[in-house]
Design a binder for these strands. Structure first.
Lengths: 242, 242
DNA sequence: CAGTGGTCTAGACCACACC
DNA sequence: GTGTGGTCTAGACCACTGT
C-alpha cells in the first residue's frame, strides 16, 4: 500500500506540513512538486486532492494550495476521524481503556419487512439477532443490536459473537467490512437504557443505526447502537460541490 | 458545471441506474463505457469513482463495477445527504415547510481562548455573537449560536443577521461556504432548551458544533446548534481505506 | 489466459486570480 | 500576461478474479 507513488507523496507532504516546513502555509505549485519529486503532475494532483478531502489543505484555483491553519493546532477541535473508522472497537477513542462485551441475547429470528429490504433478503431468509452490551473498563457505554443473515455467516456461535465479529471476519475469512451507511440521531433513554447504561431518566442516548457492507458490496449487518450520550461524539469534515 | 464531461457521464449513469437499465446490477466495464460515450477511460474512472464515493456502486478489482442494491430501493434507509449539504436552510429536509428565524441576541464580544484558536484570531480581534432561534412553519427546532470575526464581516447588522448569512455572503460578496468541520453529539436539554424548543424535561437535544470555512480556507464561523431531538438526523456513508 | 479495475505518465488546453 | 489549479486525453503497465 505504502509503496504506491501517490501514497508516498501524500505521506511525505503530510509529514512536512506537520513539521512546519511551510511556515507561510502555502505549498509549492503542482508543477514544481511534480518536478521536485520526479512524478507526474497527475500524481501530485491525486495526493493533493486527498489532502484537500481530509481538510488538511485548501486548493484555490488561480492562486495555489494552502494549509488549513486549524490542522496545525494539534490539540484543537480538528482531531477528527477523516470519517475513516469502522468497527466499534476502532470507532471510539478508548484512551487505553479495555473494551468488553457482554452478550445479552443471541438467537435466530425471521426478519421484519424493513430489515429484509435493507439486507436484501429473500422471503425465507433468516437472520441472527445479536444483542450485546459494550463496555470500557467494565463501564457500559452502548447497547448494540445486530442483525446478520444466516446465509452469510452460517457458522456463527455464542463464542464468536462474544468477541469482535469484524475481527473474526478479517482473520478467519479474509473479508473486510469497509463501508457503512449510518443515521445518527438522539432519543430520550428508555427504562432499559437507563438500567443498562446507568443513565438518569433525563439523560438521553445517542443512536447510530444502519448497514455495514462487505468489500464486494454485500450488505452484511444491520446494526442499531444506543450509546450513553457522553460517549457519542461523531466528527465529520464535509465539503460541498454539486 | 454540468457541461463538464465527467459530470455529464456521472449524471447519465445515475439516471440509467435509477431507471433500472442494468437489471443484473453490473455496469459495463470501463473500456466499453469509454468507447460507448467517446470519452477517455480516465474520465470514466472519474465518474465511477464519484458514484463509488456516494455508495451508489461498488468497484471490485478483477471483476467489475456493481450497483448497490440498497440504492435502488428508493424509499429505503439509503436516501442520504452524500454529506453534501451545508447551511441550515439546506441541511434539513424542510418538506415544503417555511423556514423562519427569530433573533435572540446580537452583540460584539471578546472571544474565549478556545474560540480564538478555532477561528484563528489574533489577540485583539473581536467577534459577533449571534444567537438565533430557527423555525419551520413557526415551529422552533433549533437554537443556534454563531460567532463570526468582525474583521471578516464588518458590515454585519441586525437586518442581515435576521436572514440567511450564507445567502448574504453568496449574493452580496460572491463568497461561498463550502467546507465545515462538525462534531455531533447529544445532551440532556437545559431549561432554556425546554422553553425555546418546547421540550419535555426528559427530552434531549442533538448538538452539532464546529467551524465553517470560506472557499479560500478562512475559518468563517464557529457555530453551536442545539436541535430538538426529533429534527436531528444525520446520514453518513463512510468508506475506510488506509 | 482473458477480463477488469488500479496506477502512472506526458502533455494539451481551459478558467480563474493577481499584478 | 503570468501563474496556478481544473479538465481531458491516449496509452502503458500492474494486480487481481475467474474460467
Amino acid at each position: 500500500m505504502a509503496d504506491l507513488v501517490y501514497r508516498q507523496l501524500l505521506s511525505t507532504l503530510k509529514k512536512q506540513i506537520v513539521a512546519g516546513d511551510y511556515p507561510n502555509l502555502k505549498l509549492p505549485d503542482e508543477r514544481s512538486l511534480s518536478e521536485q519529486y520526479q512524478v507526474s503532475r497527475s500524481t501530485v494532483k491525486r495526493a493533493l486532492s486527498i489532502l484537500a478531502d481530509q481538510g488538511i489543505v485548501f486548493k484555490k484555483r488561480g492562486s495555489g494550495t494552502f494549509i488549513n491553519p486549524l490542522y496545525l493546532k494539534n490539540d484543537s477541535v480538528f482531531h477528527y476521524n477523516n470519517g475513516s473508522n469502522l468497527g466499534v472497537t476502532d470507532s471510539f477513542q478508548m484512551n487505553g481503556r479495555k473494551p468488553g462485551i457482554s452478550l445479552l441475547n443471541f438467537e435466530v429470528v425471521r426478519p421484519q419487512a424493513e430489515l429484509k429490504r435493507d439486507l436484501f433478503l429473500k422471503n425465507d431468509d433468516f437472520v441472527y439477532e445479536i444483542k450485546r452490551l459494550r463496555l470500557f473498563d467494565d463501564e457500559p457505554f452502548m447497547i448494540e443490536s445486530g442483525y446478520i443473515p444466516i446465509k452469510i455467516m452460517p457458522e456463527l456461535s455464542r463464542q464468536i459473537v462474544s468477541g469482535s465479529i469484524f475481527n473474526y471476519l478479517q482473520k478467519e475469512k479474509n473479508q473486510a467490512v469497509t463501508k457503512s451507511y449510518l443515521t445518527i440521531s438522539a432519543e430520550p433513554s428508555t427504562k432499559e437504557d437507563q438500567q443498562q447504561l446507568k443513565l438518569q431518566p433525563n439523560e438521553p442516548v445517542g443512536v447510530m443505526a444502519g448497514v455495514f457492507f462487505l468489500d464486494d458490496g454485500t450488505p452484511f449487518e444491520y446494526s442499531r447502537m444506543r450509546l450513553h450520550y457522553k460517549y457519542m461524539k461523531y466528527n465529520t469534515f464535509v465539503t460541498i460541490d454539486d
